[in-house]
Design a protein around this nucleic acid. Structure first.
Lengths: 338, 338
DNA sequence: GGAGGCGTAGGAAGCGCTTTCATGTGGTGA
DNA sequence: TCACCACATGAAAGCGCTTCCTACGCCTCC
């Protein structure tokens, strides 16, 4: 056996393709080909290489591969925040589909971060494409990602950027109609539509549904968490002309509102109707069970991964805008149904 | 101005360090130094470089950096599954701390994947260290990661591998004692301890707590989801010698069991006690509210990131095993408290 | 005035991989 | 028997970055 080429430096502890090549008595090119099947390799040689790989426990350095192949084989996903069941489901669907497409997933939560824009840009340097949820970063930042495939989730369409959203309008109208059907009149909307275009859409639909019956709801700003829901609802309930329906921007606010209503001695579903949005697990276990709107969160994530992949692989070059249907889930918190 | 060195190939559309160097009229080494502050650069030069960076929109290729600097600046985290509120919180804590330490986060969910072991090995090639949750992969796979810093979460200690766990034993004993104090006698444990060492620990503690009062619980296997909880509980409740307490391995099972109990016409908290574990959001909104054990999930993730970082930076070379306290949260589902 | 020192910057090597191009081998047809 | 070809393989050129080593001014000190 003649001397084989050895890497010049070769000082790290990690085993490289050179080690495998030496061990199998072949060149590094053959090792690469045998492992990736990128070109024909004699069966005997392949077996020898794979044996060496096994024996040495060779794991290709991703950086090397990525640099040479000019691809990261990774997708990013940027969340405003990760708390709550909503995002976890989206991530699950995303990761599942992305990994089926052979891509790793990098997550980034911008919440509470000093400079989200630079974090996003940094992420952009290590992925082949990314998904952005909601209003995490400004339109300018997205524009600055020029060239990088991007899909926005739960955010209004933005030029040629692909988008995946849920259709809140239809269910919101249905909810408004449903509430009007209960004979409710003093409806209060809880939430801050200016924080989220999705919420704005919901409120719009609800107004439409109620408006068809001549009802004009009031609107009170509220952060999207339970404690805020309790606080805001308590204030509303102690005022004169107490609302007979609290329509909340999400389930967390609604669950908080239920607490406030009970503390005020009201029977939810009888004296007052309360509704949420998202259908989190707690919604169906609350008593009375919460009337809400179910969003296909997992499908949302999965579809986003798919749409993104089409761009990355350049299978498609025209923008794609997807709208997923939502379901109104009527339970008892909006009034008893005989 | 004399001709500056140009990259040999230079065919991709992306702007590289060579472009910046040419634009600023300096060498690539200076660009690198100006951007990273790794060596002194004259103020005027630095300004010129940074202006060029800005103007060209230069984003360093992560692959190049990673290869040259022999670091990925990324951590992995491997989940068995991502559904449920539990994991989302862990991830949130992990991501937050990791990003403060300047590391990106790669997530991997092994659930439903054909070959988890190879997925983990693949992940290992693109991170500086990783966290493994629970029983996602076998001990052998972990051993095969030799050299890569690893922290296991919610998994029994394994040799020199760092670990972060919650102390389920103490709260489990307290729960057992508490139930005995309610005068309960026919206690059934629901869950599959062989699936998870954490659950095994919980059941052990509960047995100890009950045993101190001469009570010997029965044990029934059950998957860790709501539907299974309902199914298994329904079967137990219709048998003769109906249990007067269902102690569930997690909240999901318990919430499912509440449904079964109500369908059987039993009043939870009166006719039967039901307890969970994890204190998910639904636990406090269920009626009766669920007695359960709260785990510091966010802290768990955050601490794991910290422990991992110490290994990656070689700040510490001896194993570290952390145990986080849990809290018994007594509500109404285990019996009314006067 | 010359030697030495310091601050700044460029050249070039090298990180681990993929891929092109060239080479060598054995088999085929005339 | 010889030219030709397909196939398997190796050498080497990058991929974009960091960093070591060297070089160049310019100033200081004897």
């Amino acid at each position: 056996m003649k001397a084989l080429p050895t890497p010049p430096g070769h000082d790290t502890g990690a085993v490289t393709i050179y080690d495998v090549a030496a061990h199998a008595g072949v060149g590094i090119a053959t090792v690469s080909r045998a492992m990736n099947g990128s070109a024909p390799v004699a069966e005997a040689t392949r077996a020898r290489v794979l044996a060496a790989v096994e024996e040495l426990g060779f794991r290709p350095s991703h950086a090397g591969t990525s640099l040479a192949a000019r691809t990261h084989a990774a997708n990013g996903i940027v969340f405003p925040d990760l708390s709550g069941p909503y995002y976890a489901e989206v991530l699950l669907g995303y990761e599942e589909t992305a990994s089926q497409l052979g891509r790793s997933v990098l997550v980034l939560a911008t919440h509470g971060r000093p400079d989200p824009a630079s974090a996003v840009r940094d992420l952009a340097g290590r992925v082949d494409g990314m998904v952005l949820l909601g209003r995490t970063v400004s339109d300018e930042v997205i524009a600055g990602l020029a060239g990088l495939p991007v899909v926005v989730l739960a955010r209004p369409e933005l030029g040629d950027v692909d988008s995946v959203r849920t259709d809140g309008l239809t269910s919101a109208r249905a909810l408004g109609e449903h509430l009007a059907g209960h004979g409710l009149e003093r409806v209060a909307l809880l939430g801050s539509p200016e924080e989220s275009p999705d919420v704005a859409e919901r409120f719009l639909g609800i107004r439409e549904g109620l408006g068809a019956h001549g009802i004009e709801p009031t609107q009170t700003p509220c952060l999207f968490d339970e404690a805020s829901g309790t606080r805001v609802a308590a204030t509303l309930l102690e005022g004169r002309r107490r609302p007979d329906a609290l329509v909340c921007a999400n389930d967390e606010i609604a669950l908080g509102a239920i607490v406030a209503a009970e503390e005020a001695g009201l029977r939810v579903g009888h004296d007052i109707a309360i509704t949420g949005w998202d259908d989190v697990m707690a919604a169906r276990h609350a008593r009375p069970a919460l009337t809400t709107v179910r969003q296909p969160m997992r499908a949302l994530g999965s579809l986003a991964a798919e749409v993104l992949d089409e761009r990355i692989t350049a299978t498609r070059t025209t923008p794609r805008h997807e709208l997923l249907a939502t379901d109104l889930v009527v339970r008892d918190s909006c009034g008893l149904h005989p």
